[in-house]
């Protein structure tokens, strides 16, 4: 059931994320202005862990939608892309669209949601033909723990509770605050930080991140 991780294996190594005190610097400031010669990225770094660029497709974080002008704004790292769309836009994996916005389903998308957009480009204008929201990753129920379970473990502490709680988010998010007793092993740095895992392969490891995305 956890097969998803395997596809990301080789790409994870390429990630720009490094670990250690040096990372406290976070990333270098964004270039002052997008140079015209430099093509904009089509895949956000967070998506590039598992996905490669493909022509006619971009991956990033949904930012906003304007139905009045039929435009979608998405963020690809620091860059912003704006695409037009029309009533033929195919929308996939959108759940829980409230009745009052049924006519404008993209309003149900949360800002920051990971999306893939299929598009065509003509005269420098991008036109979206499909928007596919990232589906939730399925995890077998027996491999899931709930807030109550984590609360119990944290109350006991790692020694008594015999667990290792791992925060798989990137360091800048971990620095925002983390669950008590957690250690930060960002997913892209998994291989580099293998030595942080317990020697005993039967011991309990609990992973968490920013939730169902």
């Amino acid at each position: 059931m956890l097969r998803k991780g395997i596809t990301c294996l080789s790409l994870a190594l390429v990630s720009a994320l490094t670990i250690g005190p040096a990372l406290a610097e976070e990333k270098a400031p964004a270039p002052a202005a997008p140079a015209a010669a430099q093509p904009k990225p089509t895949v956000a770094k967070v998506c590039a862990n598992c996905h490669q660029p493909q022509p006619g497709s971009m991956r990033g974080n949904f930012d906003s939608v304007a139905y009045k002008t039929q435009s979608i704004q998405i963020k690809i790292d620091d860059a912003t892309e704006i695409l037009r769309f029309d009533e033929n836009l195919k929308i996939e994996n959108l759940h829980q669209v409230a009745a009052e916005i049924a006519e404008q389903p993209l309003r149900a998308l949360k800002k920051g949601k990971e999306v893939r957009i299929e598009y065509t480009e003509k005269d420098g204008k991008k036109f979206a033909s499909a928007l596919i929201a990232k589906p939730p990753i399925k995890i077998a129920p027996e491999k899931q723990v709930r807030t109550e379970d984590v609360e119990k473990l944290v109350a006991m502490g790692p020694e008594k509770g015999k667990y290792l709680l791992i925060d798989a988010r990137p360091l800048p998010r971990f620095q925002d605050g983390s669950i008590a007793t957690a250690v930060n092993i960002p997913f892209p740095a998994f291989d580099k930080m293998k030595d942080k895992l317990p020697a005993d392969k039967a011991s309990l490891i609990v992973y968490y991140c920013a939730g169902i995305t």
């Binding site: 995890i139 988010r169 895992l197 939730g211």
Partner: peptide, 22 residues
């Protein structure tokens, strides 16, 4: 990211890997 990490831990042979998915 956590399910992906858990998958990799299992590949390494860890047998008691859980995900706090929420």
């Amino acid at each position: 990211m956590s399910p992906d990490s858990a998958g990799k831990a299992e590949k390494l042979g860890y047998t008691n890997v859980k995900v706090y998915h929420d």
